[in-house]
């Protein structure tokens, strides 16, 4: 039967592709602990689901072959069958068990990838701010005092805490071989912990549609040893030009730029929208807040003004 044939083809194709090509697929070819955990999770779920597929496809094929009309005598009349409580409970319980197993795996791995990877909990993280504007990425290294555009260098064996935000549409920061993605948004900072195990070049990108230049929002991630990284930082500090406010505004309005390096960060004059609470001014408590945070208040106002200025510039 044709039907069976095409199913077999699909199944063999599937197993072939899964076994043969997995090592070439980025997501299943991890270069860091978070991506490795996710890759394991994915392969585990694929195997579980393959089991389900095998059961359904086998039953389906057997039933179709056995009970087609051309295979039964002309006077065969199918029996009336209301169902079987026992069987129906069985195929309710088995999926519940499968879902329960997957739930445990999901909850465990979700909690794990939201934290610094195992073994790196006590290490002081390297903080990198990743901000998207138009169709480019800005990477600021506040501790090193340098900033890059559209390329990212990180040391291996070091937990990097990415702090993500956007100067406009929601974008999603994703380095498939290091770990899962997370959104960068305009009114808050989201955090993502990633570690690279081995040196090498990887693809990073924005995966959330953000407008006309979205397809061009790829950047190279280069993992290098700590020594090489320090050397690179020093090099940038020495040779790269400083980032002025003027230059930064110009950068923000430009849609596409190549790689750039600077010997300071934009955070000095355009802080990230980290102070979440400033957006949650409680109406009733306005006066109280003014009293207690009197000193900070001016700063907030200024920051707010600056933020809106930035947004004006990126709007065109």
């Amino acid at each position: 039967m044709k039907k069976k044939g095409s199913l077999l083809v699909i199944l063999t194709l599937l197993t072939f592709l899964l076994s043969g090509c997995t090592s070439e697929l980025l997501v299943l070819n991890p270069k860091g602990p978070a991506a490795a955990l996710l890759s394991e999770t994915i392969i585990f779920s694929v195997l579980m689901m393959a089991g389900v597929l095998v059961v359904v496809f086998t039953l389906f094929t057997i039933i179709l072959v056995k009970y087609r009309a051309s295979n039964s005598s002309p006077d065969y009349e199918p029996p009336h069958d209301e169902g079987s409580l026992k069987l129906e409970i069985t195929w309710t319980l088995i999926p519940i068990i499968i879902v329960s197993i997957l739930s445990v795996v999901t909850v465990k791995s979700t909690i794990a990838v939201e934290k610094p990877p195992a073994g790196y909990e006590n290490q002081k993280p390297l903080i990198i701010y990743a901000a998207s504007s138009n169709y480019k990425w800005h990477f600021s290294y506040p501790e090193q005092g340098i900033e890059t555009v559209n390329y990212l260098n990180i040391p291996t064996g070091q937990n990097v805490e990415f702090r993500l935000y956007s100067y406009g549409p929601i974008t999603s920061f994703w380095i498939p071989q290091l770990g899962g993605q997370k959104y960068a948004m305009s009114d808050m900072v989201t955090k993502l912990n990633l570690v690279a195990d081995t040196p090498g070049s990887m693809m990073g990108k924005n995966s959330n549609f953000s407008g006309k230049g979205f397809a061009k929002m790829e950047f190279e991630v280069l993992a290098m040893t700590q020594g090489q990284f320090d050397e690179w930082v020093n090099d940038v500090k020495k040779t790269a030009p400083p980032l002025t406010e003027e230059k930064y505004d110009q950068l923000l309005t430009t849609e596409f730029v190549g790689r750039e390096s600077f010997s300071n960060t934009h955070l000095e004059f355009r802080p990230a929208p980290e102070d979440h609470s400033s957006h949650f001014k409680k109406p009733g408590q306005k006066d109280e807040e003014q009293d207690s945070n009197h000193e900070n208040h001016g700063e907030h106002g200024e920051q707010h003004k600056q933020e809106s200025e930035v947004e004006d510039h990126s709007n065109h």
Partner: peptide, 8 residues
């Protein structure tokens, strides 16, 4: 609560 710089 998100009143921005406006009245509450």
């Amino acid at each position: 609560t998100r009143t921005g710089s406006g009245l509450t």
